[in-house]
Structures are given as structure tokens and as C-alpha cells.
Design a protein around this nucleic acid. Structure first.
Lengths: 232, 232
DNA sequence: CGTGTAATTGAGGATGATCAACCAAGGTGG
DNA sequence: CCACCTTGGTTGATCATCCTCAATTACACG
């Protein structure tokens, strides 16, 4: 989310944090082996047992979660991009807390849970790498509060500002983006229309481009209309 | 949240995960030193620099966060109980992402950031402890989505079920609980009244006790009324 | 060039926020 | 000990926002 360039540049193992922790540059072997999955592939389902941990090398993964552990694929919860992990919860639980699906073609470096544990024991740098990833996730992965601290246009504006990089809005279907923002596709559509009417953005069927950053920012904080206050 | 008894029993350093990682039992020294803070004390503010990491030994801490990094104390975000950490983000950022305030009298074991880093380097078990804490937090700390996946009574019911243990509802002011659930105190009040009318709970000014767990559960999933559907 | 899915638009209605009044509880000072 | 004030919680009425449902349009894909 917040971090940008660094994350995108993990194609080479020698520059990848995982690879570095494994001393790949000095001939060490990294337990995480790459594998390609194509867009739409289901990576795991909530309440499945965790059998492997994956590092996202490239592409975008959608993580969904449901409140009651009922439906298999709940509401969109977060988006994982290159540089983040999937399945780390396996270190503290037995089953997945969420489902994951590839939004684009992705490259995942995976390792079985036992290999990860072994890796954590052997490589002194390893726990630090995972710790940092986990902290980064919990710090910004912003579950984006769905609701009522921020009207719909406000939340959309906020999200757009955070995920400005043109690449990010691309390829995320409206339905998913809506879910991520805790609203219905229809509401998202209307919010976008409103923002476009103000000249803050331009949007086509599948793309959103920021036109006036300052305006977006003002929408994000004031919520646009009239005299509505949100004290406290 | 999910975990219960284990967390409450960290009063003795020899049973505390931090103490164990420091080999206190074998004469090791734990860098985290206890300190009492009384209810209402502000522990840190968002965007302050992180200078120390704290382990919550007893009591309850309220963590608040704001979307725009504007107001110092944003909306209630999460509750930290015994066994969790504060300020871990210092390992990946310079400033706090949230504000924290003691809800009850608390005992916090704190250590300066540099001491924590040193500890992480020296004690092989240390990174694992922090990693597990971070994972646990990000896995369940449920920012509880404020909104629109679940009506107000639904969210209240869900929360009550998760935080069943009588102790948890006590001492949390309505205002805070409401914020945690992404609603206004008035709405929370009405939701509670509704649940009480169904005989699912009993509530007084400051307490909520579960009467009929099954009923609560049914409210949590069906949302109670009529033919409202929430597909996908 | 037809077909199916995704995105959009419109209209109506339910939910929850807002505003204001009221009530209960705790503390303080007379 | 009681009037007084302050704070937090409840109740009621009104209204904006967003969800729902349905119909339409745009687009991708065969």
C-alpha cells in the first residue's frame, strides 16, 4: 500500500528479502520456490489447513474474509502485492483465517510450513524478515474500515490517494474495489461519478485516473457536501 | 480477543513469553521493565516518534486510529489486553500509526527501541516471540470492519459472541464500544435494547451479560429482520 | 457480429447519523 | 445531608446516506 518501488523490485532473489535472508548471493538455498498462478486462481480458502507459506513475487492477490466462518469466500479484505506474504498465520494457527485469490497472473514463492519453521530456526535473519512483513501488514494493510467514519465518496477519495500509482487502480474489478471499501458496486459507481463531476478524477469502465489531487484530498477530509459535521 | 486464559496469566516473568525468551528463569535479564499507569493515561499519540515498545502485562488498552493523519485521537480501533504489545511498529517505521490510552489501570513492561533491537539480536527466541505476537494481532485483532457487512445489531451480536467472557464487556464505556463497532452510541444503545427485547442479553448502564447464546448467534448471522438479504 | 458479464443508472425504502431533550450517577461544596 | 453541576447513557423524531431491486448500457470475448 504505502510502499511502492521497493516492493516491485523483488524479481531477483539476490534483492529479495527472503533470498537475502537465505544468503542466496553466497550460495545459500532459499526454501521458497517460485510458481506461477494465473489470474482468478484460488490460492486457499478460509478454514483450510495452512500447509504452505507464500511470498508474493509479482502480481496482485485478493484476500477475503467473512465474519462468521461460514461462507467460503467472504468480503474483500485486503490486497497483497509484491513483497508481502500469504499464509503466515500458519505460524500461530492451524487454519487459514481468510481466502485468497489471484487477481492478476502472479508469481508466488512457496514453501511448506515445516520448511518455513526449519528456515526460521536456521537462518538468524529469517525471523526478522517475517516479523517486518507481519508488522508492515498490520500497520498499513488497512482493513480500510468499511463504514461510518467517512461517507462513500470520502472513502473512495482516501483510497485513491493512498493507492495513487496508476497501476493500482487498474485491473481491480469494481465489485472487488467496492467490497474493499465496504460499499456496494452501485454506490462506488455513484461516488466515482461525483468525483468525476468535480473534476477530481477521470474514470472509464475499468480505470480510474487522478486528475486533481488537491481536490481529492479536500473531499477525503471534508466529505464534500453542505454542513454535515463529524465531530468526535 | 480470541485467546483467553493464557493471556491473563503473564504476571510472573517466568511464565511470560517475553521473560521466557530472555531466560529469566535461568538468571537472564529481561529488558522490559514493568511500570504502572492508571486508567485514562495517554500512552502515546499517533505520529509521535516511537521510542519504546511495551508489553501489556495486565489491564486493557484502547488503540485509536484516524484515517487522515490529522486529529490526534481518532476512532477506536482495537483493544489490547494482557499478552499483546504496543509500539511494535517502531521496528518498521519511525512514528506511531495509532494512539493508545489506558482504559483500566494497566501494567506495562516497556523497553526502549534500541534495547528491543539489541534484544532481538541477542536472544534467538526473541524474534519468534514478537513475530507470533504480531501475527496474532493481525490475524484476529479484527479492525471489526465498521460497516456495511452486518447491520448494527448484527455487529453487536458478533462482538458480544467473540468477547463473551464477562470480564470483557465490563469497564468498556459505551462510547468506546460504539466506536469500536463503527457506530454511534445512540445506535449501540438501540441495538442493545433490541437484543434485550429478544431475550438474548441483559444490559444495565455499564454492563452487558449474555443470556441466550444461541439467539445471539442467530442474530449475528441472519441480521434478525424480515427478508433482507446480503448476498455476496 | 451476437452473447454474456460487468458496470451503470434510476427509484424507493430501510438503516443509522444527527440533534435535542431527558435521565441516572458521581462528585463537590455549601 | 442535600442542592448543584458534570458526565455518560438512553430515548425520541427527523433526515441523509446507502442498500436493494430492476432495467439499461457498455464492453470483452467467442
Amino acid at each position: 500500500m504505502g510502499q511502492t518501488s521497493r516492493e516491485l523490485e523483488v524479481t531477483a532473489c539476490t534483492r529479495c528479502p527472503v533470498g537475502m535472508a537465505s544468503d542466496v548471493a553466497d550460495g545459500g538455498r532459499c526454501p521458497f520456490v517460485p510458481r506461477r498462478r494465473s489470474a482468478g486462481a484460488v490460492l486457499h480458502l478460509a478454514s483450510d489447513g495452512v500447509d504452505r507459506v507464500c511470498f508474493v513475487k509479482s502480481g496482485t492477490v485478493l484476500v477475503t474474509r467473512s465474519i462468521d466462518d461460514e461462507q467460503v469466500e467472504g468480503a474483500p479484505w485486503a490486497i497483497r502485492r509484491a513483497g508481502s506474504f500469504l499464509g503466515l498465520e500458519g505460524l500461530v494457527r492451524f487454519d487459514h483465517v481468510d481466502s485468497a485469490r489471484a487477481l492478476t497472473d502472479v508469481t508466488l514463492c512457496g514453501a511448506s510450513l515445516s520448511m518455513v519453521k526449519d528456515w526460521l530456526d536456521r537462518r538468524t535473519a529469517a525471523p526478522r524478515v517475517l516479523l517486518e512483513a507481519a508488522l508492515r501488514a498490520s500497520a498499513w494493510d488497512r482493513p480500510l474500515r468499511g463504514n461510518a467514519d467517512g461517507t462513500a465518496p470520502q472513502r473512495v477519495a482516501t483510497w485513491l490517494l493512498k493507492n495513487a500509482s496508476e497501476a493500482s487502480a487498474e485491473g481491480i474489478p469494481r465489485k472487488v474495489l467496492a467490497g474493499l471499501l465496504g460499499m456496494r458496486p452501485e454506490t462506488l459507481s455513484r461516488a466515482l461519478r461525483g468525483l468525476a463531476a468535480q473534476g477530481a478524477i477521470r474514470h472509464a469502465r475499468r480505470t480510474v485516473t487522478i486528475v486533481d489531487r488537491a481536490q481529492l484530498r479536500s473531499v477525503a477530509r471534508e466529505g464534500r457536501v453542505s454542513g454535515r459535521r463529524r465531530p468526535d
